[in-house]
Design a protein around this nucleic acid. Structure first.
Lengths: 227, 227, 227, 227
DNA sequence: CATGAATGAGCTTTCATTCAT
DNA sequence: GATGAATGAAAGCTCATTCAT
C-alpha cells in the first residue's frame, strides 16, 4: 500500500486520515466551492479541485452534496438567497426618508455583496446561465426575483411618500440593479485582469450612481420630452 | 503559431464577402464561430460544431486556425474594429442639444450593437475574460477604452454647454455604460432562458434609463446631502 | 478470512429466529441481503442498502462479513438447505398415481419455491454463476443435483408402474425442470418490468405445462417418426 | 510522447495509428461487444474492454455508438431481431406437416441461436432486465414479442390443420419457449462453469423436448382430469 | 461492539487535436 | 488542400472497504 502521508508520523503504515471534525466539513467545502466558482466559473471548476482546496477527497464532497449542481445551489443559498429575509426586515424597519434608504441599499449591497466573493456568483450566473438553464431558473427564483421585488419596494416607498417621481415600475428596479450588476461583472472580469480595472474605485462609482439616480428620480424635474 | 490574420488583406473595417469559394473558407468559419461563440460562450462551443456550421470538416478548421484559442482571437479581431471612427465623426457633427445627443447615443447603440451579435461578444468577454487575460487586454484597448472616451465626451459636451450639471468625470462614463452593458449581459444570459427575460422590452428599458439619467444630470436639481 | 458460519450453531435446517437483540444481528443482515440480492442481483446490490435495511451501519456489516462476496455466500448457505430431505420423504409416501404425483410436484414447487424469495436465488444463481464459479459449484451440488434426482425418480416411478412411456432418463428431468426454472427466471426479470409480464399467470402456466407434459408422457401415443 | 507501438516500425516518433479500414470498425466492435456481453453480462462489461478487444481506443467506440446502451441494442439487432423476417418467411413457405415444422423450428433455433453466442444475449436479458428496464422494454419488443408470435403461429397452424389438439393459446407459446430459454440460460450459467454442464448434450435435450411436446400436443389423447 | 466519515480506483462519456489518406 | 477516423486525457459520479472514535 504505497500511501504517502506527509501530515504526521502516522502510527501504522496504513492510511491515517479522518483527521478533521465532521461538523466543519460542509462549511469548508462551501468556502472552497465559492472561492473556485468565483475564480473560474461553474463549468471550469472541477469538483476534485474544490475537494482538494477543502482538504478532502473527491468522494467526501459527494458525501455532503449530491452533485456539482447541488453544491452550487448550496453556495448560492449560503451566500445570497438566505439574506433576503434580513434585508426585507431592514427595509420594513427603516425610519429615514427614501433617498437615504436608497443610499443605504446600495452602499450596504456593496459592503455585503459587491465587495465580497458573493458578487462573483452574480457574475457567474450572468456568464453561464444560458448553458445551465436549471441553475438559471434556480437563481432567478432565489436571487433575481426577490432582489427585484426589494428594489421595487424601495422605489415604490419613495413614490408613495411623494419623495420620488412616479416612474414606470415595470423596469424601475433595473435602474438600481443595472449599476450593481455591472459593477459585479466588471470586478470579476475586465477589472480583475486589466490595468483598466484599477481605475474604478467601487465606493466612488456607487456614490456617483446613487446621486445621479436620486437626482433622476427627483420630483422637482419636469422630464424632457421623449425623442 | 501559423496564425492567419485577415485584417491586413481587408482594406477597411467592413471586409468584402462573397469572394470565390476557396478564399471564402476562413470567412465562413469566422461567421460560424461568431454565431456559436455568441450563443454558447467560448468554452462550451465545440470546434466540430463550428466546422459543421461552416460546412467544412473539423480538420479543415485546424488548417486555418492553429487552435480553438486562435480561432477565437480571429473572431474578435474580425468583428470588433473601426466602428468608433464612424461614431466619433457622428458625435462631432451632431447639431442638437446634449439631451438629444445622449438619447441618440443609447438608441443607436441598441440598434447597432445591443440588438445584434456584437453585443454577444461584449457578453462573452465580460464572461470569460478572466480565463483569457490576453484577450481581455486586447478587448479593453480596442473596445472599452474608446467607448469610455466617447461617452465621456458626450457628457462633457453637455456640461460645457451648461446643459448637464458638473459631475465627476472619472466615472461619469459608467453612468451610460452600466445600463448598456447590463442589457447586453441580460439579453444573452438570464433573459435568454428564464420567463423573467420576456418581461424586459429593451427599447422601453433603454428609454426609461435614458430619461432617468437625463433627469439625474439635470442642473435644476440641488442634490440631496450624502449620507 | 474471518468468516462466521452460522450453520454450525443452528441445530437444524430451519434456524431459530427472534433470539436476543445482539445475536439477531447477523440474521437480520442475512434477511436484508436475501431481500435485496433477490430483487436486484448480486452486483447491483449495494452493501450500504443491505445495512440500512437491516437497521445497522455499513461498518457493522463488515464486522460480521469480511466482504460482500462472503455475505453472499452466507445468504446462499442460510437459505438453500435440507428441504430435499422433506420432499424425498413426501415422494416416498405418496399413494396416488404418477400423473397426480407429477401434478403435485409442480404445484407444490410453485407454492413453496416459485412464488417465494427462494426462486429469486435460483434466478440469481443462473444469472451470476459465471462471475462466481465457486458458488455455482456449491449451488449445483446443493440444489440442482438433488432436484434432478427427485424429478428423475418421479418419472421413473411412472415408467416402472406402466403409467408413463419409457423416455431417455438422461435428460428426462429437464422436461420438468425447464418449465419451472423458466418461470423463476421470467418472474424475476422480464415479467417484473414489462407489460408482457402481466400476461403470464403462474398457476395457469404451470397447469398447462403439467397437462402437456402428462399428455406427452402418455403411453397410448405412438410417437411420430423423428425428422 | 512515450507511446509504445508494437505493430510496426512506425516511420516517426509520433503515434502511428489509423491502421485499419473504417468499414470494418462497426462490425469488429459489435463482435467484440457480443463476445464480452455474453461472457460477463451487460453491467460488468466495460466499454474500454470492448474497444480494446476490437483493437481501438475508448473514444473510437463512441464514434460509432452513442452510448453503451446503443451498443448493446445494436448487438441485439445484429444478432437476433433482424432475423425474424427471414424466419417468418420460412414459416409461411413451409410445406410439411406441423410436427415437422415444430421439429424444424427448434432444431433451427439451436443451430442458429442456441449454439451461438446469440443465445448469450437471451441469457443476459433474463439476468439483467430488472436493472435495465429500458433494455428490457427494447428486448421485449424486438425479440420476445415476435418470438412469441412466431411460436404461436406454429402451434395455431397445427391446431387449424387438425394436427395438434386445441390448447389455450394464451400460454401455448411458452411450451416451446421455456425449453429453449432454459437451455440458453443453462449453457451460459451453470453449464459454463460446472462439471454438470457437460452432462447436457443440447441436441439430445432438444430432441427429447420436441418429441415430448409433440406427444403432448397429440389429439389422440384424452387428457387426464385436472387435480 | 458499533459507527459513519473518509477514501480512491473505476466507470461512462466528451472533445481538442493529430495525421494517413 | 481537405478529410474524418482515431486518440486519450479529463470530467462527474459511485461504492466496497477502512479505521479512528
Amino acid at each position: 500500500m504505497p500511501v504517502i502521508n506527509f501530515d504526521s508520523s502516522a502510527s501504522s503504515g496504513v492510511h491515517a486520515k479522518h483527521e478533521r471534525r465532521k461538523d466543519a466539513r460542509p462549511g469548508e467545502l462551501l468556502d472552497a466551492a465559492l472561492e473556485l466558482f468565483v475564480e473560474k466559473g461553474y463549468a471550469a471548476t472541477r469538483v476534485e479541485e474544490v475537494a482538494k482546496l477543502a482538504g478532502v477527497s473527491k468522494g467526501t464532497l459527494f458525501l455532503y452534496f449530491a452533485s456539482k449542481e447541488e453544491l452550487f445551489k448550496a453556495v448560492v443559498r449560503e451566500n445570497i438567497s438566505g439574506r433576503f429575509q434580513e434585508w426585507n426586515t431592514e427595509f420594513e424597519n427603516f425610519q429615514g426618508n427614501s433617498a437615504d434608504l436608497l443610499r443605504y441599499c446600495m452602499t450596504a449591497w456593496w459592503q455585503r455583496i459587491g465587495s465580497t466573493k458573493a458578487s462573483g456568483i452574480t457574475k457567474l450566473m450572468m456568464s453561464e446561465a444560458r448553458n445551465f438553464p436549471e441553475l438559471a431558473v434556480f437563481f432567478e427564483h432565489e436571487v433575481i426575483r426577490p432582489g427585484k421585488v426589494l428594489m421595487t419596494r424601495v422605489l415604490q416607498r419613495g413614490i408613495d411618500r411623494g419623495e420620488f417621481r412616479a416612474i414606470d415600475m415595470t423596469y424601475g428596479a433595473y435602474i438600481l440593479l443595472a449599476p450593481m450588476v455591472f459593477l459585479a461583472m466588471w470586478k470579476h472580469s475586465l477589472g480583475a485582469c486589466c490595468d483598466a480595472g484599477s481605475q474604478l474605485v467601487p465606493e466612488d462609482y456607487i456614490a456617483l450612481q446613487v446621486e445621479t439616480i436620486l437626482n433622476g428620480l427627483s420630483i422637482r424635474q419636469t422630464p424632457p420630452p421623449l425623442l
